[in-house]
Nucleic acid binder design. Structure first.
Lengths: 235, 235
DNA sequence: TATCAATAGTGAATATGTTCACAGCGAAGC
DNA sequence: GCTTCGCTGTGAACATATTCACTATTGATA
């Protein structure tokens, strides 16, 4: 691969685990821990100790060989890694049930994400204030949004014209989208898309439940051994 | 590994992609498509054609070599695979903002998941009906829940006593939990836990944005080449 | 200061996941 | 019937991720 030699690599899977580590580290910090061993933290998060050490090392976080890892310093370092050491504005599109729930979701503010402004396609919502944040009509996106210096958008709107909306957001500076709408958006160049799909999660759980309850499989880490899948799929 | 010979294997990553395939297939079905080629479907979902064919084959789904894959039959087969070919009841714990938003989340019903009953720790919510579903006090869990034949629970409650709650759910037949609470639950034997962590998703996006905007990295699939991570973490 | 017990960091081995590339098939046209 | 085209299914190659296992080091203790 062309870029093999250009620098250290961090897997995005590692980044996702860093969020978990940070979450648990905050609890430890509140509980007064000053330092923690890899096997302790690993057990609390539910990963292997070796993997934890590798993840941390790949992010430039190193521990003391006798005292373990410094709790508070790690939290700061991980925040800087994420770019959340200072609060940033994000924009919410869609002030329906889910959007309003997200407005009152505490963890966003705690993690440095401030939903600063809302847009909705519904005329009756434009002009209203939800949980302290003003809602504008989506047609005002181009005039209002640039003032807020936003690079992340959260989509919790209806499924209409998502590709067009994505393109409009990109043109006013949005680089990443967290999409709660259960519909595939065509990946547009220069936009990083992250989908949250509740139903897909439930389907995964349902799949596991069904197989486990029929006694036809066992779980080996992330691999499922299937004994009777043909019975199920050829009926 | 001991179970190498016992059967076919399906990766849980494949299962997650099956949800995406199904989502797009439903759109195609509504649009009147009878069959679809792997490269067409793959492009719509945003995966490689080879991977799509492998995923389908590993789930026992095979196409016609000249006509491609049958759209409607695939939808049915995937539903059976998930065990969602008939509706199933699920239980919601927590009728706060997020819980109520989930109650009106259309895709759950469309995908065969019916939130049949709610529990909350708040006395003032017990006895009320939210979006047609009755809410009971959490203390009634053991007397009420068994009537509903539920194996999947959705947690959208406060972060108190989650481990205890998990154990109580397990004792009345719950096998899997979809956890929206931003706190690590200690994995209990016999329960499959799936965490939904909005903040972690935003942190991932923020990480990507920061690196891209500083021009210090490039994205190669799921791997990030980092040029300047040490500058960030040793300050 | 010397000794000891336990951990961090990491090369190597293993396990898993994705992509390539092609044999072989099936439908349609002539 | 024969040919042609383009697709599926899959072995093999490649890429990535995780785990093992060991060395060097640290701070504590006496």
């Amino acid at each position: 691969m062309a870029s093999d030699k250009v620098g250290k690599k961090i897997s995005l899977q590692t980044i996702e685990r860093m969020s978990l580590y940070r979450q648990v580290l905050e609890e430890l910090h509140r509980a007064g821990w000053k330092s923690v061993y890899s096997h302790q933290l690993a057990k609390m998060v539910g990963v292997g100790a070796a993997q934890l050490r590798r993840d941390l090392a790949s992010c430039g976080i190193f521990g003391n060989i006798a005292k373990g890892y410094p709790v508070y310093k790690m939290i700061l370092t991980i925040s800087r890694l994420f770019g959340t050491d200072y609060p940033q504005n994000v924009v919410l599109v869609g002030a329906g049930n889910l959007g309003q729930a997200l407005l009152s979701y505490r963890s966003f503010e705690e993690r440095g994400f401030h939903i600063a402004v809302i847009f909705d396609i519904d005329d009756s919502k434009a002009g209203k204030v939800f949980a302290g944040r003003r809602c504008y009509h989506i047609s005002e996106l181009e005039t209002i949004l640039p003032d807020f210096n936003v690079t992340i958008a959260i989509l919790a709107c209806g499924p209409q014209s998502l590709n067009e909306l994505t393109e409009r957001l990109r043109k006013v500076g949005v680089r990443s989208i967290l999409n709660f709408v259960p519909m595939q958006i065509q990946a547009s160049e220069g936009i990083h898309l992250e989908n949250v799909n509740f139903s897909a999660k439930l389907e995964k759980l349902s799949f596991i439940n069904r197989l486990l309850s029929q006694g036809v499989c066992s779980l080996w880490g992330s691999i499922v051994n299937v004994f009777a899948v043909y019975k199920l799929t050829t009926g």
